[in-house]
């Protein structure tokens, strides 16, 4: 593939990527870095499936050109586990049956990990609003919310 050559820093590793300017970060992660854990769903910024963490903030990798991530620290689902040991949220997803087909799962994992690192004091209600950012057509969200709360316990939202 022709195009400019630039560096992407993903999960602590640098990748020299040669890609056309129009390539999105999501496509570059999959095709040029070989990190196919990031899934692209709608490719128009609606479904949230392609969520990755860029400089500490969850973003949609279909709404960012790869070139724009030059110099940034990128984290993808491949960076969550430590060797054979799953990230606590990954284990919680298994325990709570928070996935069925699994297509949206990497996006939810990166959204939840990124959001709770960015906003550690988030309430349960705020977490529910964050979960509404991404689409899951299998689980009905309840199991995903349960897994998120198991990995990141929240104080109960005070009753009005």
């Amino acid at each position: 593939m022709s195009g400019q050559t630039f560096q992407l820093h993903v999960n602590g590793t640098s990748y020299a990527v040669t890609a056309p300017d129009r390539k999105t970060l999501g496509d570059a992660l999959r095709e040029d870095c070989g990190l196919t854990g990031t899934h692209l769903g709608c490719e128009q910024g609606v479904c949230g499936t392609c969520t990755v963490i860029v400089d500490g903030r969850p973003v949609r990798s279909c709404l960012m050109f790869a070139r724009q991530a030059e110099g940034a620290q990128i984290r993808t689902v491949e960076g969550l586990a430590q060797g054979e040991r799953l990230h606590p949220l990954q284990q919680a997803f298994i325990d709570a049956h928070a996935l069925q087909c699994g297509f949206c799962t990497p996006g939810f994992l990166m959204l939840i990990v990124g959001a709770l690192e960015q906003d550690p004091d988030m309430t349960e209600d705020e977490l529910a609003e964050v979960l509404s950012s991404n689409l899951c057509r299998c689980t009905g969200y309840a199991a995903i919310a349960k897994a998120a709360l198991a990995a990141y316990p929240r104080p109960a939202t005070p009753a009005e």
Binding site: G48, R57, P58, V59, R60, L63, L111
Partner: peptide, 8 residues
């Protein structure tokens, strides 16, 4: 919009 969009 949504959380990730508000980040960018």
């Amino acid at each position: 919009a949504h959380y990730q969009i508000r980040n960018r």
